[in-house]
């Protein structure tokens, strides 16, 4: 099991942002994506997660193996922490939410409505969702936003445990998580304006 990206080109709103991107991840490995704002990291992760089709290139991993976490956590304010997690556990067909609660130090908050949590606590709940998906490839978009130092450490531990269990993680982040991971800067893959006839991006219209 691995995640291999071959010669990927992606577009945001019909405009190419990255092209010629290739990398691969084997079981137990993590890859940190870096690059300035607006370069297309979010678009890349959304494409890998299967939310949008790539312009060109291949993504080897089955969508069914990928757990995706976006900027927004998808937390319902009127449901309790436990209900939020149980919902995702039921959707993914996994039963036990205790490891996820413990892993992100949410055990004391289980009965609190999620609307009453602080931003960092919500984030932790959003990340705890990854553990109940039971999926091997984590695709994470800026997971540490609004986390304090202790929570970042919790998160890093969770990722390490996931990797130790044979999982993979693809993380777009600006901070150092202290993980033993490869780092890929996507800046060199920024799409230039296509030459005429080079690809089919609105080619006919140019």
């Amino acid at each position: 099991m691995s995640l291999t990206i071959t010669d990927l080109a992606i577009a945001r709103g019909g405009i190419p942002v990255l092209r010629g991107l290739s990398f691969s991840l084997a079981a137990g490995e993590a890859l940190i994506l870096r690059g300035p704002n607006g370069i297309g990291k979010t678009t890349l992760l959304r494409t890998i997660a299967g939310l949008q089709p790539p312009l060109a290139g291949e993504i080897s991993a089955d969508r069914e193996l990928i757990a995706y976490a976006a900027h927004a956590d998808g937390i319902k304010a009127t449901l309790s922490v436990e209900e939020n997690l149980r919902f995702w556990a039921a959707i993914y067909g996994t039963g036990d939410i205790t490891p996820a609660l413990e892993g992100f130090d949410l055990t004391k908050l289980t009965d609190r409505p999620a609307g009453g949590l602080s931003a960092g606590q919500k984030r932790r709940l959003g990340l705890a969702r990854l553990m109940v998906t039971g999926r091997p490839i984590w695709v994470l978009d800026e997971p540490t936003v609004s986390l304090d130092v202790a929570s970042v450490a919790l998160f890093a531990q969770a990722v390490q445990r996931h990797l130790a269990g044979g999982g993979m993680a693809l993380i777009a982040t600006h901070i150092d998580l202290g993980l033993d991971a490869q780092v890929l800067d996507v800046t060199p893959f920024k799409a230039r304006a296509p030459l005429r006839g080079e690809d089919d991006f609105d080619e006919a219209f140019l």
Binding site: A193, P194, L206
Partner: peptide, 11 residues
């Protein structure tokens, strides 16, 4: 075509 050209400009 105009929108495509503008998009290209931005790139």
């Amino acid at each position: 075509r105009m929108r495509a050209l503008l998009a290209r400009e931005r790139l």
